[in-house]
Simulated assay, not measured.
Amino acid sequence: MGYYVKSVVPVIESNYDKFTTVEKTIADFFIQNKEKSDFSVKAVSERLFVSKASLVRFAQKCGYHGYKEFIYQYEDSLIEKQESITGNTRMVLNAYQELLNKTYSLVDETQVGRIIIYLNQAERVFVCGKGSSGLSAREMELRFMRIGLRIDSLTDTDMMRMQAVFQDKKSLVVGFSISGEREDVIYLLREAYKKGAKTILFTAKSKDSFKKYCSEVVLIPSLRHLNHGNVISPQFPILIILDIIYAYYMEQNKHVREGMHDSTIRALEEAEEMHTKFLDEE
């Protein structure tokens, strides 16, 4: 369970919708394959009945200079893993481990650094999402609010559209949409960007259109091609990245922010003690 391997699979998954039918055939092969084999351009083209040129274009769409660079990293990720537990426990833990590996492959520390700058510069932060992504938005609000950030979560359609009107250059808007297709979330990001706000989208999809209204697109692992992905909470990939950003943010002015966090904990504990005392007196 202690393996962290830079894998090309999450990169393939995030670009999947860009591929042609032939390229999706290639993508499916590399996503589903778990064994070492002959991955030379000749062998794979013959195995999949695709041209060598298609393999090169596929690799380039994934962000590599060519097929050789792509396959070098792909082969490097095929590491034997010893399992000592069985049943549902192994299945769930393996799924989480695979998600951690995918996150490791996608996380961009330079990008995280830029996001920290945005958080420090913004006078007000709004984070939005619907469904399970809305729960992640609420989680971000609660965590960062405790260390002094002026942040509000939006999970209601009307609130997202109304707040879009009031954004400006001093705002930072964060949107969570695993599919990248939540119209309410996209609307807020798009309108806020027009008004000069910094905008960040957390998504499992890589689309060129996002660049038109997103200052940053943070790619998160997809559950779509994950074995037994249906038992994993869709919030988990988002929360991993949030934890990384939170750790970097806490590191700046660490003493002050830890003090704020401890103060909020004490305030909550005092409220609980007062409530308990009131009930005892009743």
Rank of each mutant, 00 (worst) to 15 (best):
I147D: 07
I147Y: 10
G148F: 00
L149R: 14
R150I: 12
R150F: 04
D152V: 11
D152N: 12
D152G: 03
S153R: 03
T155M: 11
T155V: 15
D156E: 14
D156H: 09
D156F: 07
D156L: 05
T157S: 04
D158P: 03
M159N: 10
M159G: 02
M160A: 08
M160V: 13
R161G: 03
Q163F: 15
A164L: 10
A164W: 14
V165W: 12
V165R: 13
F166E: 08
Q167F: 04
Q167D: 11
D168I: 05
K169N: 12
K169D: 14
K169Y: 05
K169W: 01
K170A: 14
V173D: 07
V173E: 07
V174R: 01
V174Y: 02
G175C: 02
F176W: 09
S177Q: 05
I178T: 08
I178K: 00
S179Q: 02
S179N: 01
G180N: 03
E181G: 00
R182H: 11
R182Y: 08
E183S: 12
D184I: 14
D184Y: 12
D184K: 07
D184E: 15
D184H: 12
V185A: 00
V185M: 04
V185D: 09
I186D: 11
Y187W: 14
Y187F: 15
Y187R: 04
L188P: 10
L188Q: 02
L188K: 01
L188D: 08
L189P: 11
L189R: 00
L189Q: 07
R190D: 14
E191C: 08
E191K: 15
E191R: 14
A192T: 07
A192C: 10
A192N: 05
Y193K: 11
Y193H: 15
K194R: 14
K194F: 06
K195L: 06
G196C: 08
G196A: 08
A197G: 06
A197F: 08
A197P: 08
K198V: 09
T199H: 02
I200L: 06
I200Q: 01
L201H: 00
F202W: 03
T203P: 00
A204F: 09
K205I: 06
K205M: 13
K205E: 11
S206H: 10
S206K: 12
K207G: 01
K207R: 14
S209Y: 13
S209I: 11
F210P: 00
F210V: 06
K211M: 00
K212N: 14
K212H: 11
Y213I: 06
Y213G: 13
C214P: 01
S215H: 02
V217K: 08
V218Y: 03
V218L: 05
V218S: 06
L219W: 05
I220M: 01
I220S: 02
P221G: 01
P221K: 05
L223D: 05
L223Y: 10
L223W: 10
H225V: 03
L226P: 03
L226V: 01
L226C: 02
L226R: 01
N227F: 10
N227M: 09
N227Q: 13
H228P: 01
G229S: 07
G229K: 06
